[in-house]
Write a protein that binds this DNA or RNA. Sequence first.
DNA 1: AATATATTCGTGTACGCACACAATTAATAA
DNA 2: TTATTAATTGTGTGCGTACACGAATATATT
Lengths: 360, 360
Amino acid sequence: MITIKDIAKLANVSDGTVDRVIHNRKGVSPKTAEKVKNILKENNFLLNPIASALATKKKYRIACLIPKSDKKNQFWKSPNLGILKARKEVTRYGLQIDIAHFDQYDSKSYLKKFKILQKNKPDAFIIAPVFSNETAFIAKELENNSIEYIFINIDNKKYKNIAFIGQDSQRAGFVAGKLMSLGLPKNSKCGVVQFRQSLIDHKAISNRISGFNNYLKEHRNDIKTKLIKISLNDKKNDLTKIKSFLNSAKTVSGIFVPSSRASYIASLLPEYVNTSNFSIIGYDTTEDNIFYLKNDKIQFIISQRSFNQGYEAVHIISDFLIQKKVPQKKTYSPIQIIIKENVDYDSRNKKTFINELSNQ
Amino acid sequence: MITIKDIAKLANVSDGTVDRVIHNRKGVSPKTAEKVKNILKENNFLLNPIASALATKKKYRIACLIPKSDKKNQFWKSPNLGILKARKEVTRYGLQIDIAHFDQYDSKSYLKKFKILQKNKPDAFIIAPVFSNETAFIAKELENNSIEYIFINIDNKKYKNIAFIGQDSQRAGFVAGKLMSLGLPKNSKCGVVQFRQSLIDHKAISNRISGFNNYLKEHRNDIKTKLIKISLNDKKNDLTKIKSFLNSAKTVSGIFVPSSRASYIASLLPEYVNTSNFSIIGYDTTEDNIFYLKNDKIQFIISQRSFNQGYEAVHIISDFLIQKKVPQKKTYSPIQIIIKENVDYDSRNKKTFINELSNQ
DNA sequence: AATATATTCGTGTACGCACACAATTAATAA
DNA sequence: TTATTAATTGTGTGCGTACACGAATATATT
């Protein structure tokens, strides 16, 4: 293992000079710089990232811009826990993790929380880019200040995030299409739920829908789909819409919910629907979704190790800052097919961490 | 960030004493040990793993016991590349990675290579436990010398490996069952391929089969399955068996190949089989499998990010040795559903690494 | 040529911990 | 009590790098 000292000896210069060359610092003549560079290459020298990390005075700060979760919106609870776990670990390395939770239905809160985080001048951002347009502003802001950022859970090609961690949502929709078609008789009809206008630009959701439609188009073009617009606020009205959809054809046999709110649809489902011929397919193993899965109201949940998404995101950006380790562009979470029978084996990590927390 | 020095001051002892307490080294009186321990806890002190790694003189050695790959058996090529990539990275930390390739059809070579690796007295093992019985011997041997080991790709509950990285093979079989049933008409018949006796105790394969059968039993008990025993050596004989299976019922509509050799079955398939009503489902995106997938002979491949399995395995065991970072018991690879249409987007990591290699 | 200024280079210390060794204290033997 | 040994504690150095500071050399100014 060749060190800076070794290189210095070989080049007949001091350690400091080698250090300057390695980091492209000024104060070294072109001649010696060239000489040192060559010797560096010849011995294919690499910095010892551990010693480097220890010696670096700089303390990094990472900001997380993540939706908050509550009883109605449980999905983000899991990534948040993952972030907390990772925070515990990286704090030892002199890293500081700021977390701000925004309202995922309020784009203004997204921007507001971003600006708050920005005040601490973080060195990197972890962002859940729920709002496409506002993300444009944020991305620009960060790029102007050459602050790197990664996306978590929701991807968006338009931006220069150095990494994405989450599911391939297009493919996740595709798999949903496959699962759905499993139970669809010839020429039947299937609903696709869309919750309120404001989430139209939620890339993960729109990708799931397009993946879903793609599957049906490619493999089951006998199937008709119908968009069902649901308010999420007006339960009575929502119920009416579901009922009218159910009555809109002879063979209605499934509803695809491209978000984590399949439980809401399940809760609206009238008792007379024969669930053995009818499928609800949704995403993410939230408490409510699991409840309805176990009660045969939801047939499939596609989950994505969301706890790990938070956990990995922090580690990826930490390694990038400290060790200059360039992350993979895409870290895809598994497309887990969760059914009644295997749901209890899902997301062990999260459970262990929650236990750790409560033991303190 | 509290350091050993800080603790020492608080306890009115020297750094060395704190160090002894932290590492449970002898030579410290029960009284002071108690005192230091309390202060350690009160301030919930954690070692700085970076400084710790830098100061540790010990250089670790990791041994990898992995099948070799060739034209006929391409699967292990990918994990091997992952291991090589990780090796490049961890060498910087003073780690040495020994790799030995055994013949996955010869249990003696498995043991032989193990013994060779053992001679270098490695500190930990990465093992692909292809042979269940011989693994018992190896595990015992390692446990007697308190050498930790992790399993890669193939899991086995019987042993005390500190981690497993790979697919949940049971679930992977289950998903295969689901995919298969997609195209199965009522009361049709479907074959399950089993290659030669010696691989019966290959846990990943037997788990896939049981997962597959479980799915059909649970969801499609109208389906009959038939075990097709294939030699892999005697092509003529194998072809006869396939043909006789195809003629054994009116509606034969699929073959499940629970290994990476679906391509072999595809190559045997007679031209007259109508592949639009007939599915071959197999595992792993080997070159040959991809070839037949693209030619519509194979309908589904379930893949598992095998490159990452090798890559992660090395990092997991490295972090364990250097940073004492306790690994997750199970690191499950995604159950990726690969079809003709998305196969080109699979395993990017591997491709990047191969490019890196060839640029040198 | 002598001085001032800029450029290039070397040295020393710190990061937090591990560990060998020295120093101190306690326990035991004579 | 004193000498001897064992148990306990303290000190110092090194791991490989980052970076501030000062020394040496080169260039410019008068």
